[in-house]
Amino acid sequence: MKEEDVYSELSAIRNLMERSAKFISLSGLSGILAGTYALAGGWLAYRLVYRESGGIQVREYYLSDPLLWKQLALIAAGVLALSLATGVWLSVRKARKQQEDCWNAGSKRLLASLTVPLLSGGLFILIMLLRGQYGIIVPACLLFYGLALVSGSQYTFSDVKWLGFCEIFLGLLAALVPGYGLIFWITGFGLLHIIYGIVMHFKYDR
């Protein structure tokens, strides 16, 4: 057997092992659409929060209305539901095109690694909402989401890890600079997802 054939065989075996161990059906388009949903949700939140003012009065505008926070939570839940549904649909479609099983060992490991930080983060945020600690909500969303991405990146594309680090950085910055929650939320879940989705599309989907 020629040396080129040996390298080719080894490359094919490594490819097969990577496909079985990692979830590689993530679609860049799902990131773009998730970011778009977040921008739309951010616009709705802006209309709710600043409907009686002339613009974004950062640092001086703190929310203490429980009803308003319930409305904002519904918007966030809607963005999350749309993003998850779109991500699952596009991942299944991509897996079928590649003639692969979307629900494999890699996707199961990815889901397991995402569950702990996302579930604990969701419960923490719910507790903060019930206690009226509204200023912690946006930083916590970004931080726990970033931690989940970094945790899950070992079972999918490594690019996910860098998105996670960016989300963590934004979460810490949002905690350091209170009063800018809406801007950080739009940046983290909107703009960063769109940038990530574009990179993923041109890197893996073309």
Rank of each mutant, 00 (worst) to 15 (best):
S91V: 00
S153L: 01
G55E: 06
A174D: 02
A81K: 12
P66R: 02
E4F: 11
R93L: 08
G106S: 09
D5M: 13
F169H: 03
P66H: 03
I56Y: 14
L82H: 10
E18C: 01
G42E: 07
S158E: 14
C141Q: 15
F184I: 00
S153G: 02
E52M: 06
C141T: 12
I168K: 08
D205W: 07
L182G: 10
L192R: 08
L26I: 11
W185K: 00
W69C: 00
Y145S: 13
H193T: 06
L147G: 11
I186E: 10
V79K: 07
R109N: 14
R19G: 01
R51N: 07
W89Q: 02
S158K: 12
L149V: 01
L82V: 02
L173P: 04
Y50R: 04
R47W: 03
K94C: 03
I183F: 12
L129V: 02
L129Q: 11
A85W: 12
S30D: 08
F169P: 01
V49P: 01
L90A: 04
L82M: 15
A40M: 14
Y204N: 13
R96E: 10
T36E: 06
G135Y: 01
R109G: 06
V199M: 10
G35W: 13
A105P: 05
L33E: 04
A76P: 00
I198T: 07
G106L: 07
G181K: 04
Y62W: 08
I195Y: 12
Q98M: 10
G135R: 01
L82G: 14
W185Q: 01
P117Q: 10
A73Q: 06
F189I: 00
V116R: 10
R19F: 05
S120W: 12
S53M: 13
I137H: 07
V49N: 04
P117K: 11
T86R: 09
L110A: 13
H201Q: 15
Y50S: 00
S53W: 11
P117F: 11
V150F: 10
G190E: 11
E4V: 09
G146K: 15
